[in-house]
Amino acid sequence: MARTKGYPEELDKKLRDTRLYNEDSNPEFTKTVEKISMTIPHMCYQCGTCTASCPSAPRSSYRIRKFVRRALLGLEEEALTDPDLWLCTTCYSCTDRCPRDIAPTDVIMAMRNLAARRDIVPVNFLKTVQAIYSSGHGVPNNDVNRAARMKLGLPADPPTTHGFPEYIKGIQTIIDHYKLKERADKIIKEREG
């Protein structure tokens, strides 16, 4: 279907036909998302309970309802390339309240998995991978935190890999098995040089 009139790039972008066409839908995408997420986005009736429960929605352009709709319609490109996909805090409020008993959070997680397979991941998420690889923590301990813990009478470092650094090796083995760190390093290098 011709959606452009062959204008110069800038103009073409502006005047491009953005209507929904049959070929935009990929029914396989719906099935794949449902398989990974183990939930039922095809049952969504668009009531908006998820978005209204979402702590991210009032402060961003992230609309969980829209992503569930995309899962239902099989709008793969639109879902996976939308940077909003990464604004979910995974608080599970939507999952808690969805009247159709869908787990929208898990739909988002499935889409993130699929996006990651295509190397569509924001750098900050990849840096989290690096942080976990080096310290065992997505958010490693810091001096402010250490002081606060001491004040409460707790050891400065928690009984995690911070307290037992010898276990970091195990975490690294798992990450290496999936070549996660390797890919993260590669993508970050490509983007940031």
Binding site: C47, G48, T49, C50, A52
Partner: peptide, 19 residues
């Protein structure tokens, strides 16, 4: 559909959260 309702403890007014 309304996701949740919160109460203002002073005025007892209600805040209706919906999309």
């Amino acid at each position: 559909r309304v996701a949740n309702v919160l109460e203002d403890p002073v005025t007892k007014n209600l805040k209706v959260m919906a999309d």
